[in-house]
Each structure stands twice: as structure tokens, then as C-alpha cells.
């Protein structure tokens, strides 16, 4: 007996065609309100903002004057702005690398048969759920010269390591970076845990049968299959740390001096403290380009290492 599968007969005729066309339009019509709203609150202000980057707009009623590339020239020549750019890049690179490694280590450690793994996963992930401003205030208190961290160091006989964590320009930036990693390493861990769930156990079994040890299985089986997770983790961390504002502003305000000032903090101060909206918009534009460039490079670079299961 032969079974013939065929498409059901298609209703022909011009009326049916028109009906199908109308039906096909519905999803697009449903998108219109959201698109209009998005265009109004995101696209239009963004494009308009980009225009202000070439003006001296100070938030006043009169039409802002066109200043060409002056705002950008100032950004790359002013010592404070250059310092903020350097701090932003240091924070972004160090946070991205360390947070990814810590998150990966946590994920590998907690992707096991440990009885308390769910409790530990929750504990490590919990800081990522708290608002950055709360984290900032919390750590600002912990890191004061007479704060709990220095007290704890003293209590365990390590008083010599006590520092003015946020008030000494030689350690303030490192302190801020450590807080950011502390808060977000749990998020990276979750991304890697999701990736580890997708690693087929039979690959590990096959490798074991071929005589591969634990380190070899990690290196040649697990890590290659975690590249997509790494791409996501690195992208999110890099973008988040490049536009970092909340924790820095709350913990140090960019100080002492200019030691922890990031581009986002300078952008905020120039707009809302100094009223230099044009210059501030130029900083925002440069920051957007930096984020875009880094994200693009990173995505392209990492996709080469992704392997198909």
C-alpha cells in the first residue's frame, strides 16, 4: 500500500488571496503602536541627542550654536575626560576578565552533586538581584576607614592590610572594581550553569572511555561547548561595565579627585551639574560608539571559537 502525502488543496481565487494578504498584515498592524512608542521615546530622542553633540547647547531656550567637532576635541584633550576614559577602559577590561573567570569557576564548582549547591547558587546570585545603588551604599559603608572590612581584618590579625579603600587614590579604583565583580559574578555563574546543562553527558562518558582525565575533559569537551555562554557573559559584562555609573557615583562620586571617574560619571556631571548638555551628549555618543565597537569585535571574535554539537 502506498501512502501519498500531499498539501491540502489551496483555496484559490482572488478573494482568498486578498483575505490571506489582509491576514498577513495583522501582525504588522499590531506592532505599529509599540513601534510608534519606541520611535517617540527612543529613536527620535537618540537621533536628536546625536545632533546636540555638535552644539554648545546649555539647556537654554535659545537655539544652540553649532560648534562642529569642538566637543569631541575637548573630550580627547581635557585631562579629566582622558582620565575618565582610561578608568572606564580599565574597569571594563578587568571586570570582564575577572568576573568571567570567577563566574566560570563558581559554575563549574556548583555544577556538581553537592547537597548544598542550590543554596550556594542562590547565595552567589543574590547580589545580582539587588539594585546597584543599594550595593553602592552598602559597600561605601563597609569600605570606610573605620568600617567592617578593616575591623574584620584587624580581628583576624591582618590589620596591616587595612586600607582607606575608597579614600586612597591608589586603591579606590580597585575597590570599585572588586565591588562590581562581587555583585555580578553570580549572574555570570548562572549563564555558565545554563551552558553546562547543555553539555551532553555522553560526550564526557566517551572522553572518559578514551582515557581523558578531569582536566582534559574540561579543556577539550566542556570549555569548547561553553563558548556560546562565554560570548553572552562577556558581552553583558563588557557592555555593563563600559556604561558603569551607579556604584561609582554612590561609592566615590568619581573621587578621590578623579581617581574613579568614569565616562558615565563625567557625562552626568557635565549635563546636570554644569549644564553643558551639548558636551555631555558628545560624551554619550563616544561612549555608545565604544560600546558598539567592543561588542561587535567581541561577538565576531568569539563566534569563531563556537563549536557545533
Amino acid at each position: 500500500m502506498t501512502l501519498t502525502l500531499s498539501r491540502p488543496a489551496v483555496d484559490g481565487g482572488p478573494r482568498a488571496t486578498r483575505r490571506r494578504a489582509r491576514r498577513a498584515r495583522v501582525p504588522y498592524l499590531l506592532l505599529v503602536p509599540a513601534l510608534l512608542f519606541y520611535a517617540f521615546v527612543v529613536l527620535w530622542p537618540t537621533l536628536q541627542g546625536a545632533g546636540y553633540a555638535f552644539t554648545d547647547w546649555a539647556g537654554r531656550r535659545e537655539t544652540p550654536g553649532f560648534v562642529g567637532l569642538d566637543n569631541f576635541t575637548e573630550l580627547f584633550s581635557a585631562p579629566a575626560a582622558r582620565s575618565a576614559l582610561r578608568n572606564t577602559l580599565i574597569i571594563a577590561l578587568s571586570t570582564t576578565i575577572v568576573q568571567t573567570l570567577v563566574g566560570l569557576a563558581l559554575a563549574l564548582a556548583l555544577h556538581s552533586a553537592l547537597a548544598s549547591r542550590n543554596l550556594l547558587r542562590t547565595m552567589f546570585f543574590a547580589p545580582a538581584l539587588l539594585p546597584p545603588v543599594i550595593i553602592g551604599f552598602l559597600w561605601q559603608y563597609i569600605l570606610t576607614p573605620a568600617g567592617p572590612l578593616n575591623d574584620a581584618l584587624g580581628a583576624v590579625g591582618l590589620g596591616g592590610l587595612a586600607q582607606n579603600w575608597l579614600g586612597d587614590s591608589s586603591v579606590a579604583l580597585a575597590s570599585v572594581i572588586a565591588v562590581i565583580i562581587w555583585q555580578n559574578a553570580g549572574l555570570t555563574m548562572v549563564i555558565y550553569l545554563a551552558g553546562l546543562e547543555g553539555v551532553p553527558p555522553e560526550l564526557h562518558e566517551a572522553a572518559t572511555m578514551d582515557g581523558a582525565g578531569r582536566w582534559q575533559r574540561l579543556r577539550h569537551v566542556t570549555l569548547p561547548l561553553l563558548v556560546p555562554a562565554t560570548t553572552i557573559a562577556l558581552s553583558l559584562t563588557l557592555i555593563g561595565s563600559l556604561k558603569l555609573f551607579d556604584q561609582v557615583y554612590v561609592m566615590t562620586g568619581g573621587g578621590p579627585g578623579y581617581a574613579t571617574e568614569t565616562l558615565s560619571v563625567v557625562m552626568y556631571k557635565e549635563a546636570f551639574v554644569s549644564g553643558r548638555y551639548g558636551y555631555s551628549t558628545a560624551i554619550a555618543l563616544v561612549l555608545t560608539m565604544i560600546v558598539f565597537a567592543f561588542a561587535l569585535l567581541q561577538l565576531r571574535g568569539l563566534r569563531r571559537f563556537e563549536v557545533q554539537q
Binding site: 576607614p145 582607606n164 575608597l166 579614600g167 586612597d168
Partner: peptide, 11 residues
Amino acid sequence: SDGMLGIPADQ
């Protein structure tokens, strides 16, 4: 105060 640049107002 020692460590003056790291001391917030309330403290």
C-alpha cells in the same frame, strides 16, 4: 581625621 577622603558625612 585619618583617611579623610574616605569618610562620608554621616560618619
